[in-house]
Design a protein around this nucleic acid. Structure first.
Length: 154
DNA sequence: GCCAACGTTGGC
DNA sequence: GCCAACGTTGGC
């Protein structure tokens, strides 16, 4: 099993929204690197850290699980969607997504500042200056450490 | 609101 | 294929 970190702006979609709906299609990713993670590398059952970006404070707020295989992101075919891609077609989809299930909500945010000041976590992608990728792989040891700090068992 | 980082676009 | 311009992300 691999481990991941997924970013979401809580004003758009928060860990509480995920807890409420239970399962959410991760639509709207329009970066090839992040797409490849979902399309090629994620397996059903993989666990992900749920990260709130553009939040006060930013940080990890819970856990999610990859619910199934990659699917074509339907928003790419919808002319009314802000994620519409006229260069894509249902016969040859360009953008893929997975669905995430809610696993846990941390009792408190594990803040970016805490991640950066922890020697075991400071190397994580999300801690690096200028990191903008919305999906990044996480080392199993880092994942386990974060679950412990977050007071949560996956 | 500022701005560094980085991806994308498009002229050549 | 190069690279300047531009747009977006996201912490601060």
């Amino acid at each position: 099993m691999r481990h991941w970190l997924i970013k979401s702006e809580p004003e758009v979609f928060s860990i509480h929204d995920l807890a409420r709906v239970g399962r959410e299609p991760w639509t709207g990713v329009r970066n090839y690197q992040a797409r490849n993670f979902m399309w090629r590398d994620m397996q059903p059952g993989d666990l992900a850290l749920f990260y709130h970006s553009n939040a006060k404070p930013p940080g990890i707020v819970g856990l999610a699980r990859v619910a199934g295989p990659p699917l074509p992101d339907p928003t790419q075919f919808d002319p009314a969607s802000e994620y519409h891609d006229p260069k894509s077609s249902p016969a040859n989809p360009r953008w893929w997504m997975v669905e995430f299930d809610h696993v846990a909500t941390f009792p408190a945010t594990l803040t970016l500042n805490e991640l950066k000041t922890d020697p075991l976590l400071a190397e994580m992608g999300v801690c690096q200056r200028g990191s903008r990728l919305s999906i990044t792989p996480v080392e199993p040891s880092q994942f386990a450490h974060i679950c412990e700090l977050g007071g949560t068992r996956p």
